[in-house]
Amino acid sequence: LQLFIKTLTGKTFTVEMEPSDTIENLKAKIQDKEGIPPDQQRLIFAGKQLEDGRTLSDYNIQKESTLHLVL
């Protein structure tokens, strides 16, 4: 599923993930694309901070959802 990642600077980029992927996987993918170390990434969806060990489906993140990346 394609997700939109929006940064505080207003930049938006996309990543391609599976619902079974963990937040950790997502942070690694963001590191590949943007060079931001996972330990500096905080991801927010629907007002909640996402925890590394959980999956996208745990948070009911669907295709074309927008996640906010806070550094």
Results as ranks from 00 to 15, higher is better:
L1K: 04
Q2S: 12
Q2H: 09
Q2T: 13
F4E: 09
F4Y: 15
F4R: 12
I5G: 00
K6V: 14
K6W: 11
T7K: 12
L8Q: 08
T9C: 05
G10Q: 05
G10M: 06
G10N: 08
K11C: 05
K11I: 12
T12R: 12
T12Y: 13
F13A: 02
T14Y: 12
T14F: 08
V15M: 07
E16W: 12
E16K: 12
E16H: 12
E16I: 13
E16D: 10
M17L: 15
M17G: 13
M17Y: 14
E18W: 11
P19I: 09
P19W: 08
P19E: 15
S20E: 09
D21L: 05
D21I: 03
T22F: 07
T22Y: 10
T22C: 03
I23M: 03
I23F: 03
E24D: 13
E24S: 14
N25T: 09
N25S: 13
N25H: 14
L26V: 07
K27W: 03
K27R: 08
K27L: 02
K29I: 13
K29L: 14
I30S: 00
I30D: 00
Q31Y: 11
Q31T: 13
Q31D: 06
Q31A: 14
D32Y: 13
D32C: 05
K33N: 06
K33H: 12
K33R: 10
K33Q: 07
K33P: 01
E34W: 13
E34T: 14
E34P: 01
I36R: 03
P37G: 06
P38D: 04
P38F: 11
P38T: 15
D39M: 14
D39L: 08
D39F: 10
D39W: 11
Q40D: 12
Q40T: 15
Q41G: 03
Q41C: 04
R42C: 05
R42K: 08
R42Y: 13
L43S: 00
L43E: 00
A46V: 10
G47C: 04
K48A: 14
Q49H: 14
Q49L: 12
Q49D: 08
L50M: 11
L50H: 00
D52Q: 05
G53H: 09
R54G: 09
T55R: 14
T55Y: 08
T55A: 13
S57C: 03
D58H: 12
Y59D: 01
Y59T: 02
Y59E: 03
N60L: 06
N60K: 13
N60A: 10
N60G: 09
N60P: 04
N60M: 10
I61V: 07
I61H: 02
I61T: 03
Q62C: 04
Q62D: 10
Q62Y: 14
K63V: 09
E64D: 12
E64K: 07
E64Q: 14
S65P: 03
S65N: 15
T66C: 04
H68I: 14
V70Q: 07
V70G: 05
V70H: 07
L71D: 14
L71H: 08
